[in-house]
Amino acid sequence: MAAKKFVVDLNKPLVCQVGHLGDEYEEWVHQPIMGKEGPRFFHSGVLEVFTRTAWWVIPIVWLPVASWFIYNSFRLGLETPRLPLFVLLGIFVWTLAEYLLHRFLFHVQTKSYWGNTLHYLLHGCHHKHPMDSLRLVFPPAAAAIIASMIWSLVKLVSTPLIAPAVFGGILLGYVMYDCTHYYLHHGQPKSDVPRSLKKYHLNHHYRVQSLGFGITSPLWDKVFGTVPPPSKADAKRR
């Protein structure tokens, strides 16, 4: 006798349920629910608060941190003409980190209880409820964990003089990424570049979730061959 399929009850907190989906989780999480009201994650009100982050929290928290790191390189003696170059290098490095994290961590395929649960908290919730404005940007506590790992790597591969400037640039890149990501979902761009980026990203959500991992830029999708094919409508226009 076949085992009965688990059905998620959307009227109950979701985090404790999604793990039970097993190998059906991947299909379930990529069937988006378009309502703007986000689901409840936890029974605990305290835990629930920490799952919600307004977009403006990101620049308020991280821009001062980025500035402090950049200032440290200046304080240690990094010359002014070289300082912005290493900050720009950090922003460029972030674009690669953004791509790699999105492709290999945020889209890792899982089927175990804890794998599904952690993935849902990390990124799956965004694909299931893409218009939930308070679950779109990264909560600072979660971002700090990833940032600390990146900082350790930057210190390992660069000198004490330039490491803070590079890491400050990475943080600036992250702020631009999260704010851009929010805008692509909730903004109404009028000019060509942001309109193109919005279309590119929504294509990743609603048509080909396994391709198109760049958010601030499709650069690394082009480098690594993960640019999604044109839709039928786009192909006809060409």
Rank of each mutant, 00 (worst) to 15 (best):
F86M: 06
T51G: 04
P140I: 08
K4H: 08
S191Y: 09
F74D: 13
W55N: 14
V49Y: 15
G187W: 10
E79N: 12
V61P: 02
Y206D: 06
R207G: 02
P229Q: 14
K36A: 04
H181G: 12
H30Q: 03
G168Y: 00
V61L: 09
N203K: 15
A142V: 05
D178R: 06
L134C: 05
G169Y: 01
P160V: 12
T216N: 07
P81T: 13
K190I: 13
V65H: 04
V154E: 01
V15Q: 01
P32A: 07
P194K: 13
L88A: 13
M131N: 13
G90L: 02
Q109F: 00
L85R: 14
I33F: 02
Y182S: 11
S67H: 10
G19N: 05
L76C: 09
Q109T: 03
D221V: 14
G115L: 08
Y177S: 09
V93Y: 07
S133H: 14
W114D: 06
K232D: 10
V157Q: 07
P39G: 04
F41K: 00
W55L: 14
Q188V: 10
I70P: 01
L100A: 11
P189K: 09
L47I: 02
V193E: 10
G169E: 00
L197H: 05
E79L: 11
Q31A: 08
K190Y: 08
E79K: 13
L161I: 11
L202P: 04
G90R: 00
